[in-house]
């Protein structure tokens, strides 16, 4: 993925469960600062929660950065981990697929909830997810 466009507005280390809540709060604040509408914020923060939890649960922890992009104004997050990566991305994005005996709705759901969704992953080299939404 290309270089981040600017300094992040927030950067959260995802090491334990409460860091997922910290990521949600940071994104929620950044969207409030943009005057985001309630439904857009709920959708985006929910997607962020899924991706941050995946980085923690499947990626062994990671880092989430929040960016404010201009022209047109939008929010972007980048979530990186250096975990085992995903061998088959199409399969992982499919609702119902989980290697954790969970529901497997996180990745597919997150993609439906945001305006732009990019994922990059290779076995052994970790996973990076970028998501964007209008305020």
């Amino acid at each position: 993925m290309s270089a981040p466009p600017a300094e992040p507005a927030a950067r959260i280390e995802l090491r334990q469960e409460r860091d997922v809540a910290a990521a949600r709060i940071a994104v929620s604040r950044a969207m409030d600062a943009m005057g985001a509408r309630a439904l857009r914020k709920t959708r985006f923060v929910t997607a962020v929660s899924e991706i941050a939890r995946n980085a923690l649960d499947h990626g062994g922890g990671g880092v989430l950065e929040v960016y404010r992009l201009e022209r047109p104004l939008r929010i972007m997050i980048r979530c990186r981990d250096e975990g085992p990566g995903i061998a088959d991305l199409d399969q992982a994005m499919t609702d119902g697929f989980s290697t954790a005996r969970s529901m497997g709705k996180g990745l597919g759901g997150a993609r439906r909830l945001v305006e732009a969704f990019r994922i990059e992953s290779r076995p052994g080299s970790g996973t990076t997810v970028e998501m964007e939404a209008k305020p």
Binding site: L39, T42, T46, D95, K105
Partner: peptide, 14 residues
């Protein structure tokens, strides 16, 4: 349940 939460849950398939 907030209205925005209901709409989001449906989209998550939950």
């Amino acid at each position: 349940m907030r209205p925005a939460v209901a709409m989001t849950l449906v989209e998550l398939g939950m």
